[in-house]
Computed example of a mutant assay.
Amino acid sequence: MTAGEIQDLFIATLTRELGGGRRRWRLSVGNVRVYSIDTHPHCNWAVTPSGSAGEIERVERVADVLRQRYPIVTE
């Protein structure tokens, strides 16, 4: 799984579950940052969502699910 694939999963999940446009959710999710497995052995990626409080909360909920399924990604 790559960072781009994780971002696509975020956008597809948010669009399917909550509606709205893909562009809106892409902006809310932002970029997926990938860290070294040496320093982050359990989960090596993160996002910094933006938007309204509700949008940020929704992105964080999806992030929790995706971290469980895909804890390690590549750039």
Rank of each mutant, 00 (worst) to 15 (best):
S50A: 06
Y35N: 10
S36F: 04
V34N: 00
G54N: 03
V62E: 06
G19R: 05
L14D: 02
T2P: 04
R69E: 15
E75P: 04
L14A: 01
I11P: 08
R23T: 15
G20W: 00
H42R: 15
R16Y: 07
D64N: 14
D64S: 15
V29S: 05
R61S: 09
L27E: 15
R26S: 10
R23I: 14
Y70Q: 14
S50D: 08
V47H: 04
M1R: 10
H42Q: 14
T39C: 09
P49A: 08
V73W: 08
R24E: 12
R26H: 11
H40Q: 13
I56E: 00
D38P: 09
H40S: 10
I72R: 05
V73A: 12
V59F: 09
L27I: 13
R22W: 02
I6D: 03
N31K: 15
G54T: 01
Y35H: 11
V73Q: 12
G20K: 04
T13M: 08
R33D: 05
I6L: 12
A46R: 07
T2G: 09
R26I: 07
V73K: 12
L9G: 04
L9W: 07
G21Q: 13
R61C: 00
I11G: 08
T74H: 03
A53K: 10
V73G: 10
T2S: 04
H40F: 11
M1K: 13
G4I: 02
R58Y: 02
D8G: 09
R67K: 10
G54S: 05
H42N: 15
I72M: 11
V65L: 10
S50E: 05
T39P: 02
R61E: 11
V59A: 08
E5M: 14
D38Q: 15
T13H: 12
Q7K: 15
Q68F: 06
I37A: 15
Q7N: 11
P49D: 05
Q68R: 14
Y35D: 10
R26C: 10
